[in-house]
Design a protein around this nucleic acid. Structure first.
Lengths: 226, 226
DNA sequence: TTAAAACGATAGTAATACTATTGTATTGCA
DNA sequence: TGCAATACAATAGTATTACTATCGTTTTAA
């Protein structure tokens, strides 16, 4: 991965945090190690206490940034979606053909880190693993509706909408673009999870580079064809 | 729903429970109220203590049936998949056309309770809500691999395989049948969840009866077409 | 330089997810 | 009918979690 100027900042909804972790060194440490530790332990075993130890700080400090471990997860997942959106805009900006843009979008959704940039304290590859294993837990909660009102899912919705618009360019009559896009992005996650842990539920072999992208691309293009 | 003879018993993998809840009245009570309470509270707020109160028993007793709340969830989800498999076999037994059988399968996966039977102490409609909101949590765990070795996901795999076989009857050359089927069954859940809680991520309106089935059926048939 | 903000250190709480023990009730079966 | 096995209720206890609260010290920014 190439480094890109740190003057680009991925924004996350303000309601998600109490204090912007990007605004201080401690905050960045919390994000950096938060990602690593959450990936190691899984959301359930991950605690602020353990993260405090790891970052050489205390629970109290972390609670000054995030109201709860759930909100830290929301932050990380939102960051990821915003990052994908950024990359999508970047990667499709000069492409005229909507079909080609759709192909790029699916590659990005599938977690292919194409080319570009990364951000100093965020290990995108590790973050991707968190997204695969934990992102569903962000909304599969009794608090979804409140969280939604707070705008916790805006970045996911924005990304979804962008891809929906590409589909509608190709076939304005297609009735289920949003459902198709959300199906693809969710599928992109658990197909990888299945490939690792429950391989009989998938035909994807992670050692063969393009299968996931091919599967999803074919599915989408055939589905939306007139 | 019509009642069907109670002499049909949906079997769940033995490793999932310590003592078969179907083998006693207390056990059946635990399942019955377990479903209701878990749906009410959500998995996170659901505890064996609360369930014990509800069933007029104690935590200790519930722990004699299930090692953990996670395993109770696994039990319920497994029961559901077995139930779907049973209904699938039943509903497709006399249909010659594989395409027609596939259509039936997708309807069943989409949670359409078609016709038939129910089981005395199990409220299938409530169980379905649990499946929609909680089933992903069954495998999105650091313990997946162990749980998988114990056979916790066999019923899901069996159901998946049956539908994969139908697809291969229609198009033996299609490369990703298992991925497609798992995509459909997962999608069937969260499209419903989205429709209720995050409607901008879907085009499904739950008030319009056939949309989900139509969306999924069209996607599958187009994807596997030669 | 000085006040505000951030942080560290520590304490505390209610709840959770269990394990363990013991005495009583219920049941199967000889 | 009687007795042993099993099931269950009642109770106690533990380590951990997910916080909240307080207070003194350090860091930072005007």
């Amino acid at each position: 991965m190439n480094r890109l100027p740190t003057n680009i900042k991925i924004k996350v909804e303000e309601n998600v945090y109490l204090k912007d972790p990007e605004s201080s060194e401690k905050g960045k440490l919390i994000i950096e190690h938060g990602i690593k530790l959450m990936e190691e332990l899984g959301l359930e075993a991950f605690t602020f206490k353990k993260l405090a130890e790891r970052t050489g700080t205390t629970e109290a400090t972390i609670y000054r940034y995030f109201e709860s471990k759930h909100n830290l997860l929301v932050y990380l997942i939102s960051w990821y979606w915003s990052w994908l959106e950024y990359r999508l805009v970047f990667a499709t900006s000069n492409i005229a053909s909507p079909e080609e843009r759709l192909r790029v979008a699916i590659r990005i959704l599938s977690g292919r880190i194409e080319n570009d940039m990364d951000f100093a304290h965020i290990e995108e590859v590790t973050l991707q693993k968190i997204v695969i294993a934990e992102s569903a837990k962000v909304y599969l909660t009794k608090a979804v509706d409140e969280d939604n009102k707070e705008g916790f899912f805006l970045s996911y919705k924005r990304l979804n909408k962008r891809i929906v618009d590409i589909i509608l360019e190709i076939n304005p009559a297609y009735a289920y673009p949003a459902s198709l896009v959300s199906t693809v992005s969710e599928s992109a996650h658990y197909q990888v999870f299945y490939a690792k842990h429950l391989p009989s539920l998938t035909n994807i072999d992670l050692h063969q580079e393009n299968q996931l992208v091919d599967f999803l691309t074919e599915m989408v293009l055939r589905t939306i064809q007139k």
